[in-house]
Design a protein around this nucleic acid. Sequence first.
RNA 1: CGGGGUGUGGCUCAGCUUGGUAGAGCGCUUGGUUCGGGACCAAGAGGUCGAGAGUUCAAAUCUCUCCACCCCGACCA
Length: 565
Amino acid sequence: MRQSTLFGRTLREAPSDATTPGTRLLLRAAIARPLAAGLYTWLPLGFRVARKVEQIIREEQDRIGAQEIRIPVITPAEYWKETGRWDTLEPVTFRTRDHGGREYMIGYTHEELVMHHARSEIQSYRQLPAIVYHFQEKGRDEERPRAGLLRVREFVMKDAYSIARDFEELDRQYWAEHDAYARSFARMGLDAISVESDTGNMGGDVAHEFQVLTDVGEDRIVVCPSCDYRANMEKATRAPAPAAAAPADLPAYASIDTPDATTIETLERRLGLPARDFLKTLLLRDAEGSVVAVVLPGDRELNEAKLRKVLRTSAVKFASEADFTAAKAVPGYVGPVALRARTLVDASVEPRGYVAGANRKDTHLRDVVPGRDFRGERVDVHDVAAGDRCPKCGAGLAVRRGVEVGNIFKFGPYYADKMDATYLAEDGTRRPLMFGSYGIGIGRAVQTIIETSHDERGIVWPKAVAPFDAHVVALPSRDGAVPPAADALVAELESAGIEVLYDDREETAGVKFADADLIGIPLRLTVSARTLKEDAVELKGRRAENGTLVPRGEIVATVKELARP
RNA sequence: CGGGGUGUGGCUCAGCUUGGUAGAGCGCUUGGUUCGGGACCAAGAGGUCGAGAGUUCAAAUCUCUCCACCCCGACCA
């Protein structure tokens, strides 16, 4: 590929709204270009990377016996209505009608469609197990696209779907996919770890995410430094702190005056007590409008994902004024004592005396003892914090940020039950198709590679996904001998199966080298008057500081050996 | 959706407070010099100042409405 004709130019400066290093390099190195919020066009260099990432995933899916298919982007409403997701996905999907008025949506994912095909194709246990997958666009009307390709509104996903006879077979498929994912990410140069995750609006109960730990990630990941415990914050738990014995002789609770002290911070200052000595009581309402109070220690944060799970609801919001009145609570002074609301008490609340809101303006109560002065359902709805003890081994946990590059779900009969998808078992009974689904976002993977593999000069592509194997840079020369020599080298490399980006532009050495570093192809081959005089080619790895001269006669073999891992 | 911010040539930005000829650097074109780490000289091209309405003799600048994009929070690959 001649760089002089490459569609898409490199930028010396990144647009000012590009916030992460990967987004800046994505734009500067002409990998992709924005079209609208959350919509990106792949440029040739980026598209080549995307295709290599796809190919790695394809090979690993094929290796475990998955079969590639292709389901349309535009999907009819009727299948989504069978599972109820036509309604629940409404806020995050793109929809349209045909001229006959029939409803469709751009696939948000493809479980329903696979299940539809499976129930008609699969009649007998003899056809199981099966895994199908495809690479297909997903449309998600995200409320907030972010950071280049990390979160967009349309993206290609490799989504695989496993269909099994029973839980055991599903379990084997699940772990086969888990391993295929681990191999895929490793091959594309991503250091991804698998963590336990919440299932969100996908349904089902067992799920893992593959997370790449990096500061630009949106997810908070709890990692144990001494054992293999890793979990998304939405799911993470901790070993309970040693239960402090409740002092037997605590006095009955009593009012204290706390004018204008509506936050834990104010109370800490005012009363000279640490945040953990307070109880904060949050009045919330779920998607159906039911009100619930959640009691947490003052130093703990509510984990909404956990709470949604406990409440079996899709959204949790703060309570309205009317809700406060009905619960006999006062904003800023909510407390669990004599509160008229369903009360959930977080597991981190200990059996001891606390300061809590009195449900009266400007008043708190001291010596409030859980169990004695109020009751509630015990639940785990708090965020794990750095330093909490690992639920597996007791070591101090760390909290990191991560990019979710893939996830896997074990649904069991969840979809089959809703869609009446059964097969005839060996014993003559009808049984539900056991289902699992597995997704990798291609664009997100590509940008995550950039986020985690670059230096101050540009991208450093892993060999397996680099847009080209080698970057031949022909420097300008007076005698006109360089271009034909470089042409010949490129032709020879290409006929040896090497993918070459050939910088044949009339630019100075500085510009060419800067672009080569920015684009980040693993091997750089320089042809110049200087190298011709030595009958050699300068070879430099992307990370190397200096190149070395390789005799012209050996260069093709040398590159061939270095190019492929 | 809530909160915040920004829209001026392809990119980075100045100009706006205090209304009066639309600017700089980079990039682009042409010619010349240079030639191994983002060269130099000269001459050019390129802008409905996000859109619409209003105020005014006069609007990039003031007012209103709308739009787009970015960032922070709740969801996901």
